[in-house]
Design a binder for these strands. Sequence first.
DNA 1: TCATACATGTAAGTTGTTACATGATTGC
DNA 2: GCAATCATGTAACAACTTACATGTATGA
Lengths: 185, 185
Amino acid sequence: MSLKHAILGFLNMRPFSGYELYKLFNGSVNNYWSATHTQIYKALSELARVKMVEIELVHQETNPDKKVYHLKQSGKAELQNWLETPLDLAPVRDKFLVQFSFSDSLDDKDIICNIESYIEKINEKMDVIKAGHYSEYLKYAHSNREKFLWEKTLEHGIRSYENELHWLRDCLSELKQLSAGTEES
Amino acid sequence: MSLKHAILGFLNMRPFSGYELYKLFNGSVNNYWSATHTQIYKALSELARVKMVEIELVHQETNPDKKVYHLKQSGKAELQNWLETPLDLAPVRDKFLVQFSFSDSLDDKDIICNIESYIEKINEKMDVIKAGHYSEYLKYAHSNREKFLWEKTLEHGIRSYENELHWLRDCLSELKQLSAGTEES
DNA sequence: TCATACATGTAAGTTGTTACATGATTGC
DNA sequence: GCAATCATGTAACAACTTACATGTATGA
C-alpha cells in the first residue's frame, strides 16, 4: 500500500501527528498523493499495530491532545526496502476521457461546456500550485539532492497539468472548426 | 461509478458480451480505463439487476455459451445524463512520485535504476500503442465527430506518456550532472 | 503436450469514499 | 453567533485486486 509507504517516508524526516499528515496529503503533497483523514488514521493504527511506528501522546493546553508518531527501525527498513523496488506502471483510470470519448451523443455546445468546465478546474488547481504554498517546504530539504527531488516532483505536477491544458485547448479549437464546417446556416 | 458508465457507453454502440468488454478494457481502451474481468462481470450483473441492460443468452457450438448484453432505455437515459454532467478533477495518486520524492535515502545508482526501469516500461507501453492495435477500432466510428473524439483520446495517451518521458529524461540527466558535481575522485 | 483463447464466475481481502460523531478555541 | 481550525475516530459502503475454480477447442 503506497499510503503506508508515503507515511513512513514523512516519518523518516521527522515525527508527525495524524492531523499534520492529513494536512500534507490535502495540501502540498496532494498533487502526487492524496488521502482523507479516515484513511490516514487507519493506516497509522495499522503501522502502530505492526510496530513500524511508535505513538507519543502529547498533551496540549489550548488545543486537543494529539498523538505524535515516530518511525521505528522496522518501519525504516520497510521504507528503505520499498524505495529500492522498481515500480510497475499504474493502471490508468481517467473518467474525463471515458466521458469525452462517448460524447458523440451530446450537442457540440455540451461537449464544449464539459471541456471548458474541466479547463477551469485545472486552472484553479494551477493557481494554487503557482501561489507557492506547494513549494514552501523546499527549504526543509536536508541535501541538495533532496531539494532537487522535491523540486522535480513539483515540476512534474505543473508539467502534467500544462500538458493536459494544451490537449484540452486543442480539442476545443478543433471541435469548433469541425462544427463550423458541418454547420448548415 | 465510471466503470458502469463506460460499459453503458460501449453497449450504446452495439451489444457486447462480458468477455468482449474485458478484452476492450485490457486492450484498446486500457490507456484511459482499465478493469479486470472480475469487476466487469460484477458490474454487468448489477446493471442487469437494476434493468439498465438486458441479457441475451447465445449458444455457441465450438465455444462456450455466452451472455450478450443489450442496452435498455433506462441505461441509455442514465448514460446520457452522466455524459451531460461536468466532472471534477480526479484525486492524484502517483506511487512513482511518492517513491521518487523520498529517494534521497538511496544511492544515485539506485535512483537512476528506478527511473530507467520506469522509462523502459513506458517505452514498452508506447510501442504497443504505436503498433496500431489501439487505433483499429477508429473505422467503426459513426460520424466524423465521433472519430475525432476517439482520435483525440488516443492522442491524449500518447501525449501524456511522451510528457512523462521528457520529465523522466530531464530528471536523469540533471541527476547525473548533480552527482558528477558532488563526486570526490 | 502445453499454452492460449474462449467464457463466466465466487470469495476474500485491500483500498478509498462518505457520512456520522465529538468538543474546545479562535477570529470575524 | 457562526464558521474555521485543531484533533481523533467509527461505520457503512463502493471500488479494486488476487487467488481460486471450471471446461472446451485450437494451434504450435
